[in-house]
Design a protein around this nucleic acid. Structure first.
Lengths: 205, 205
DNA sequence: AATTAGATATACATTATGTATACTCAATAT
DNA sequence: ATATTGAGTATACATAATGTATATCTAATT
């Protein structure tokens, strides 16, 4: 008697909707809660109107849920604009645009801050987020290579990339956000990035 | 029958020694453990050869212990050199020295990284650490004011201060430390700080 | 009409923090 | 000398969170 497994459009649609509802409840809980420490699956489940076990059914673990929330935020965070930015003719303008896009991303949903907090307590989640940040690093590297003079040393290039990577990170954005609008932070970061690149084109150093 | 309370030199000395031993065990546990999540008072107590309740006796809470560890690290972290640095005649040289001192501090004991992780889960601990960082901010502010031209706008000064504050923070240090020695990180940060100050003295912008 | 996927109900194991109470023992005070 | 005190211990308990296990319910499919 072979099991007659099947896929059910109605069922999987309902499951997908449940999943969405849980993710929505989770990001809302992250946004409104004052610390990642108070973020429990129990709270999320209640907010979504499901059982805690349903959350485990859908995401496997707390970590799985957090990753799903991050990916959802990333989907609506405007990162798709990066492709256009990278395609710009002027690499310096492209970098400015990239900074703008990431400032928009970091500021769009305050849950990203809480997710960065979650990196501290869950090394595997931290690794997952770091991997997602590699895209930003690759973008910075590509633009830096396009900007750098032929004579610029590999070390100078690496320094510029790593510095710009740090400048465009969430922690830097959060630090500069005290008393500044998103656009103001953006300008400060852009200026700092310009300065980081100055060493690569001006051989006077 | 009034209670005849008293202070015992021998007892309080023994208690102080116990306290030291617990702090030492805690920082070692932080250093060797791979995540703040695995840092429990139970582990620390066993490592120190005392009971968990003794830890509560001495520090009141997990948070109290973490603050004590941070303060102990700060005591031996070379921050006392800041006074000399601030007294230097050339404010730019003073800032370079300040960056050097903080790079030394962040790199001296890897437990500081774990303590910064603990900020994510405990808002009150985070606030306590932020207060201790205010000293750095004040230092940066004072030096920036000494460096800035008379014509530099208040906003430009604030931007420089906040950027340098972010550049000299632990997260930036940790980010730049991937594949770099302490001294190499120091040089990168110093150069970035110089660039952040350029806008304040060169009216060509 | 039987079966299946998703969700629920209930229970349990484990790990932490934090509090409470009674106890041991060496260091003090009278 | 002897009672008392402070630091640490032993044991127990309350609470909260993650994660696993098992049986059950219900609507969608075959």
């Amino acid at each position: 008697m072979p099991p007659r497994s099947y896929v059910s459009p109605a069922r999987s649609a309902a499951a997908a909707e449940t999943r969405e509802r849980v993710i929505e409840a989770a990001s809302r809980t992250l946004r409104e809660g004052e610390s990642i420490a108070r973020f429990s699956l129990d709270t999320v489940a209640k907010a979504a109107g499901v059982t805690r076990l349903t959350v485990y059914n859908q995401f496997g673990s707390r970590r799985g849920l957090l990753e799903a929330v991050f990916d959802e935020i990333a989907r609506h965070g405007g990162l798709h604009q990066l492709a256009d930015a990278m395609a710009m003719a002027d690499p310096r303008a492209a970098l400015d645009r990239m900074v703008e896009i990431f400032c928009g991303f970091w500021s769009r949903d305050s849950a990203v801050g809480r997710l960065h907090d979650a990196m501290a307590t869950d090394p595997e989640f931290a690794e997952a987020i770091r991997e997602r940040n590699e895209r930003r690093r690759r973008g910075v590297t590509a633009l830096t290579e396009r900007i750098a003079d032929k004579g610029a040393s590999p070390q100078a290039r690496r320094d510029a990339v790593d510095l710009i990577f740090a400048l465009t990170s969430y922690p830097t954005f959060a630090s500069l956000s005290a008393g500044r609008s998103k656009d103001e932070v953006c300008k400060v970061v852009q200026a700092a990035c310009h300065a980081a690149l100055a060493n690569l084109s001006d051989p006077s150093s």
